[in-house]
Amino acid sequence: MTSAVTVLKLGKCFRRYRTNRPRSIKESIFRGLRGMQPLDTFWALRNIDFEVDRGRILGIIGHNGAGKSTLLRMVGGIGRPDEGCIEVHGRTTGLLDLGAGFHPDLSGRENLYVNGIVAGLTRAEVHERFEAIVEFAELSKAIDSPLRTYSQGMRQRLGFAVATHTDPDVLLIDEMLAVGDQRFNRKCLDRIAQFRDAGCAIILVSHGLVAVRELCDEAIQLRQGEIVDRGPAEDVVLEYEKEGGS
């Protein structure tokens, strides 16, 4: 059986434009089409190869701007590779931007429905899971209040709860482990471990090296868009720390 996620020779090329690249027709007419040409191009990702099997967690570490989030997004189908290919089998859920579609003027309940459907569930499926989601988010009392009355932590909890009730085959997590207080955080980590045990393939981008070491089976380190180290999570993190990474 093939892996849940296969990334082969992936490359993503970004065009860097003049900072004052015309954003309006007026400017582009004034300056001619020269201003539209990219100043130069650079590879945000190059020669990326990896696989993630079902029930495994892959960690991605590296400095800011190393290409971690871009890579994760591309696995989620956001943005198109310029080289190579990405194959993903099954439903993908991202813990990338929690609370997509949230609006402060709608109640927690309404936002839960919108967000759940946006995350890939049908209305009936959200309905079935409604109680479980509210319970997980610990928001039973506040669920009918408008979202603008929620604290930051409450919003994150709701977003996390919705995203993790979508039974994904592939789960993409970007720095989302710092949700809520310490106790809730623990709950999130347990939830992720449950997904792994249920056979979900997980990719985790994090600066929290402890989380990577604790949760991940394998890890890769990115530097300027290329993989510089790979192997068991423990070793990769150790090596990264030795180099003076955070």
Partner: peptide, 29 residues
């Protein structure tokens, strides 16, 4: 209570229901 078979979720019919729900939800919002 909740056994949405993973196969069903990739079926064209499921997809159709999903797109309809999403469209309606966004309009209602």
């Amino acid at each position: 209570p909740r056994i949405p078979a993973p196969v069903a979720q990739t079926s064209p019919l499921w997809r159709w229901i999903y797109l309809r729900d999403l469209l309606l939800e966004l309009i209602v919002r």
